[in-house]
Nucleic acid binder design. Structure first.
Lengths: 109, 109
DNA sequence: CCCTATACCTAAGGTATTTATGTATATTAG
DNA sequence: CTAATATACATAAATACCTTAGGTATAGGG
């Protein structure tokens, strides 16, 4: 997979996963995406954590830290604002996919 | 349209258009994309020209300048190397679309 | 006991964008 | 005729996101 194509879609992927699965923690997101895409998408931690913090700072995500034995996990949830913005983000992504499909598979006349 | 999603796919779009339509000039590419996507994708000149020059420097595109009255146009064509690389780029894009679709529209069980 | 997996994080550097600006010719509307 | 818009190229500064590389620490399997 060409990793360049991935650029710009990470935020939407995170929002969509949280929207579908409820609270998730960072590492869980990377693994979920890996499984769903048969390892085609590998979200690096250097991209993921800054993205999560960005979305949190924008008020789209809330966090809750849970202790699991001696470890901790930071669970991320969509805020009200995050839920509202998510529908626009998903629409934008669907529109993007439709249009890129038109270019990649133009109707044969 | 959220322009962030567009990031990273410009090179592939250029290569695909040249592959489908033969030689094209920069402005023509922006207009073609605009028409195909009903104005959803607007390729800015600040993104387009550096991209064209980049692809030319990589040896994927050749240019030919033509005079049209007192004006000139720079037509871009795929080189042999560009044709070879294009199939990989198009495959990568198809794979990207498939996987992003899986995330955006997971099967309902 | 060591390697791998789990789980968080940040910093430096690279690179593709946006935004703004510049130049010039052609065409259309008033 | 002249002003605005369209055509057509281009670059530079700023921004934003990503990769790569590193750091810390616990858990579990061989």
């Amino acid at each position: 997979m060409n990793h360049k194509l991935f650029r710009g879609s990470l935020d939407t992927i995170i929002i969509k996963l949280l929207s579908d699965n409820g609270p998730m923690y960072g590492y869980e997101i990377t693994q979920k995406v890996k499984v769903m895409t048969s390892s085609a998408f590998k979200i690096t931690e250097g991209a993921l954590y800054p993205a999560l913090h960005r979305l949190e700072n924008k008020g789209l995500l809330d966090t809750e830290t849970k202790n699991i034995g001696n470890r901790f996990r930071k669970y991320y949830t969509l805020t009200e604002s995050g839920i509202k913005e998510s529908s626009q983000m998903l629409e934008d992504m669907q529109a993007f996919i439709r249009n890129i499909q038109i270019i990649m598979n133009p109707a044969i006349n």
